[in-house]
Every structure is written in structure tokens, then in C-alpha cells.
Amino acid sequence: MTLIDLGESTVQERLRGEGLILKTGPFAARIRTRIPVVAAALMQVYQDFPVLDASAFADFECHLRRPLTFRRWHRPQVLFLADGRSVFKPLPLHQAFPVLEWGMNWCVANQVHDRLVFHAAAVERNGKALILPAPPESGKSTLCAALVASGWRLITDESVLFDLRLDEVTGPVRPVSLKNASIDVINDFAGNVMLSDVCRDTLKGTVAHMRPPSSSVDRADEPATPAWVVFPEYRAGAATLLKPLAAGSAFMQIVKSAFNYPALGRRAFHRTADLIDQADAYTFVYSRLEEAIETFDALAAGR
């Protein structure tokens, strides 16, 4: 059963009642909210995602509600609660959907300790994963969205999971989060993408989410072998440049993106080293998306 099978009114009903259990790759999140706009936004970008019935296990308990103070009515706000505890500062109510997305990211970043979790995007071709770790503003999501629009399978835009035993990369496939100028850039680059309504004046500026292709959603459980770790950097007007990066430096850089490296210690150290041993590392400077895609297509084709 997917969201579109269920239909918006049933989705709404579940959100208000016992919760909607949304399956995103290896994780299931139980979402509860009485805020009406959330159902419509979910329908826009999650329509092909499986929904589990109420008797299923959910990894994360997500609750979105207004605060119990006067800010419930006066310039209303929204809180995201994980396991009943508010984890962000209250934000304006119209940002409810982005807040839900950030909240689910928070759950993966903070509540998953049985595998390494990197703040990175990953896409796949021929069973091989291209991992794009990056700090915000590096153009990671833009690049990821463009690769997906060009036929790469989306593994994740936000949290790359690396198993502690198997040399496999997975991810919770979820909508790609686009900010500010990237929204128009992706719209211009690919006519076929479906973006959510934009949400203005958030902490990240204007944001919109891109619906993942249904083929990526259908293959959400399929792992990929880590093949390339690429640190992208968008630099206006720069020439496209893919440059090999020495393993030691690649290790030290990707460690900065590992959410649970401190919590896993020694295990995280060796698994990160294993990952870097297996993958080729590069830095990548770009300004033109078309050239960026050509570069990665060539990399995947072994050219």
C-alpha cells in the first residue's frame, strides 16, 4: 500500500489518529500530527512510498504539533517531537512540512547506532554507489538532484548508511531537499521533476523538496557497493574539475560528516577506513551541472 493508494483523506485520518507509518528504505517512521498542511505535502513528494499498517514496527516516533503556549494561536508555531521530546526550537507553523523532514533527518542522525551514518548524499549506477559527503552550501543536494534527474538511482540525499559488517551502502530514500537558487536551477535543468510547494523564510531560506522517481523508491532496499567518494564544491563560474584525493585526507574529511563516529569509536574508525579503502576518493569543483553529469557518467562507465 502506497500513499497514493491510500488517498489524502485516509492519510489525513491516520496522521490525526494512531499515526501514519511511512517506510523510507530501512526505516519506518510513525508520524502523528493534527496540522492539516502536512498530509497534502506528504502526498506531493511521498506518493509512491509504502505505508505500513498500524500493527507494524516503527523505528522512529515522530510527532508534529503546535506548542501548548499562547503561540498555539498567536503567530502559531510548530514543534517536532521525537519520542515525545521536542528537539528543535519552535518554528513558524507554515514550515510544518520542512520541520517534519528535518525531524526525520534528526532521528536518523541521532537514533541509529548499529551502522555508520554519514551526512551525505548517495546515488547508484550498475550496483555502484557514488557518495557525496558535504557541508551545507557545497551544492551536494543540487548535484544529487541533477544526477537523479539524469538516470542515477537515488539512494539518499541526506544520510548514507554503511553497514558494520557488510560492505554495503544503503540509505533512507527520501525527497531531495533543495534550497534557494537550486530550486530554479533544478527546474531549468530537468523539466520532468516534481517539486513540492516552496516554503519561504525558513532557517535555510526558501526550501522545496523533490519527489524521488518511483523507480528509486521501489528499489529502496537494494544495497550498493561503495565505489566513489566525491567531495563536491560549487564555485560560481569555475571550470569542472575532478581531482583524485589521497586516502588519508579523504578519511579525515569524511569523518567530519559521520554523525555517530564519536558514539561508535573504534568500530567507526575501522569501518570508515574500510569504506575509504574500497572507494576511490576525489574532490570535485563545478559550476555547470551538464558538465558535472558528464563527468560522473564517464566515471561510472570507467572512462
Binding site: A246, A247, G248, S249, F251, G265, R266, F269, H270, A273, I276, D277
Partner: peptide
């Protein structure tokens, strides 16, 4: 300490 030799570097993890 755990050591991991890489091509260009030795990585050390201090337990």
C-alpha cells in the same frame, strides 16, 4: 591505539 595504514598516511585512533 588502532592503526590503519593508508596509501599516503598512517591513521591512528586513540581508544
Amino acid at each position: 591505539c588502532d592503526f590503519r595504514p593508508m596509501d599516503d598516511a598512517m591513521l591512528i585512533f586513540h581508544g
